[in-house]
Simulated scan of single mutants.
Amino acid sequence: RCNLLWSAPKTLMIGWVDTVRICVIRKRSPVELQTRDVTEYLVDPVYTFQTDYYISGLGPLDDQLVLLGVPKECDAETGKAQRPVLSVADYKDCEFCELSTDSLNIRGYEEYSCNDYYLDMLIEENRFFIVSPKDIVIASPYDIDDRVNWLTKHGRFEKAITVLEEIGGKTMKHSVVTVGVQYLDHLLAEHLYEEAAILCARICKNDKVLWENQILKFAEVNQLRTISPYVPKTQEQALSPQIYELIFYEYLKVDPHGFLKIVQEWNPTLYKSGVIVNKVLEHLLTTEVDKNIYLEALALLYCYQ
């Protein structure tokens, strides 16, 4: 089947068998009209090239060309037709160069020939419709959201975040924060707590609500000690006192030296020292280990009140 398409008012695309021809309708020069008995306009083939497949349809994509076709050779194992392919090619400068080629998963493709497929399009929207006897597939140019979707689906969160950062941090569907939270959940599930803590600081920045929501995830897996070095500690960025108190409680139970250290280093205005004092007193009633460390921390906490 010969495929004809007007890609512009004076540009005709022709796809026939395995050959593509781009023709331009032009007006003859006055000299040509005077010296020869010819029509005023002519069809001038400006590009001609061959493909490795039989052409089922073609169309323009900005300055490039979209081709729908069926491979010439049958499948070596089954002896039946192969999957149809959708290619994007550059054809300027008298060279034909395929930029991308994708095989399409069409139901029943083994029984179809190139004439069983049809390519339609909305040129203004760069949207293409691949029509077969059983399926209609809609294709559109690959954008940033598509790329981020693919990267996150394949677990390449770091690359997805980098892509978003390069374009200002967000698109219509994704942002550094949303992808970062996905990545954070993935790291926690893989028990990569230190990497998750570093990422948390990277994505949360000055967002207090986001900080608190992510810190609670570390609390669920008893890893508040891992996130504690990265938690905001200035008055301008201070979180809810309860968040800092949760971190104190974890240190109190499992790391007395770490508990004393944060009592010494953290600004007492970040938390309610009286609440921590009560927890220390309760803990001292049930432990005989490292009592001197807890008593030293308790003395400091009393001084802060």
Rank of each mutant, 00 (worst) to 15 (best):
V277H: 01
Y118A: 13
P84A: 05
L270C: 11
K159H: 11
D146V: 01
D135I: 03
V46T: 13
E95G: 05
C114G: 03
Y47C: 08
V254T: 15
R147W: 11
P30G: 08
F49L: 02
Y251K: 08
I55K: 07
V85G: 08
G59E: 03
E195M: 06
S103G: 06
T171P: 05
W266F: 14
E32H: 06
V231F: 04
I247P: 10
E125A: 14
G59D: 00
Y249K: 13
V46H: 03
Y244E: 10
L270A: 08
S132I: 02
Y244N: 11
Y53R: 14
P133W: 01
S228P: 02
L224M: 11
P256H: 05
L184Q: 11
D37A: 09
R28N: 14
K72Y: 09
V254I: 15
D143T: 04
P71G: 09
K153W: 01
K153P: 00
N267T: 06
N105H: 13
V254H: 13
V275S: 12
L122R: 13
K153T: 10
L295A: 09
Y183K: 02
Y271V: 12
Q242Y: 10
A299V: 03
G59N: 01
V289R: 02
A89Y: 07
Y304W: 07
S113R: 07
S240D: 15
Y302A: 04
R225D: 14
L216N: 10
I293C: 11
R36P: 01
T19P: 00
L285E: 14
P60A: 08
K153S: 08
L86A: 12
L5A: 08
N206Q: 05
D143C: 10
I144K: 12
V38L: 12
L61M: 14
R202A: 15
N105F: 11
V24S: 09
S113G: 13
S273G: 02
E95D: 12
H186S: 14
D120C: 09
I215P: 00
D207G: 08
I138D: 06
F129C: 06
P141T: 00
S273A: 15
H283S: 03
R36G: 03
K173R: 12
H191P: 01
Q235V: 12
P60C: 01
A196N: 08
G155E: 10
A219V: 00
C74M: 11
V88F: 06
F218M: 03
K27T: 10
L284S: 04
I161L: 15
L188W: 00
Y47L: 04
K27A: 05
F248K: 06
G15K: 01
V66W: 03
E32N: 08
D146F: 14
C23A: 07
L285K: 14
N115S: 15
L151W: 11
Y53V: 05
